[in-house]
Amino acid sequence: MKEEIFASGRHIPHIDPYLNIWHWPIALYLFLGGLAAGILFFAGYFVVKGKEKEMPATVKWAPIIAPIALVIGLLALFYDLHHKLYFWQLYTTIRFTSPMSWGAWTLMAITPLSFVWVASYMKEMFPGWDWKLKILDRFEAWVIENRVPFAWIMMVLSIILGVYTGILLSAFNARPLWNTSILGPLFLTSGLSTGLAAILWISKNEHERKTISRIDLVLILVELFFIVHLFMGFLAGTAVKNEAAALFLGGEFTVTFWVFVVILGLVFPATLEAMELRGFHVPAWLPPLLILFGGLVFRFVMVDAGQITRFLY
């Protein structure tokens, strides 16, 4: 036999018996951050490509979600801090070794940018919109004039944001489930895919829907490939990595992950999207809803399961 116990007793809140320091706000934020990154990336992308007119939902309407998602995400992050009144300390320094530090700065840049982006389309979306102040009119004119450079900056920042939602977790070598370099690309892909799902939900334009569906199909396939890759890495890894994989291969997260994330959140909506592209009638809200739900569950599963995996005891 081999047994290890805390002889002095130890039951520290949030630490024992399993680490549980990050709760739903972190998972929710990772989802909303990825969603906003996806929406803003494609809004920027189609402006850079000069397809603004063909993709109205992508460029104008869906981005309304981004600032809302980012603000809710930021509030969730703030809510999760234990020493809330000191949050401003984040913005007194940049620490390049800490993903949370440059993530906080990225958010500081992309959140106002998402507001500016939406504001610059207000007059097009709501005819008769009046900014009331001259200076705002002038600012709007300046943004509209420089829309392409803005789109480029937004694309770069949204990629950083999307990757950051994964790297935030993968930087912790103490949590074997998170500590894999595939997590950054995986979270980015998932974020882009949930962004496309939101666009697809909003779009009424046949051509736009088809374009978005096609990109989404590719992203879902890439995501599935990354997931396979993730588990291949775990199973070929050290004991702690094997244990991390075991949580999903027979362990307590098996059903949640494979049924809700992989099948209902990726495979099934991808099949529906493919059928729609072939001319079958599919309820327009169903694939996006499934993808968004799968993406949300994925973040919750990763945040919860990662904290269970460890080196000792």
Binding site: H14, L81, H83, K84, Y86, Q89, F172, R175, L312
Partner: peptide, 19 residues
């Protein structure tokens, strides 16, 4: 200077930190 974000707690393989 601590904001209580929990990143250090997540990063410790010895679970030596607590809020």
């Amino acid at each position: 200077e601590c904001i209580g974000c929990g990143a250090c707690i997540e990063s410790c393989p010895y679970d030596a930190r607590y809020p």
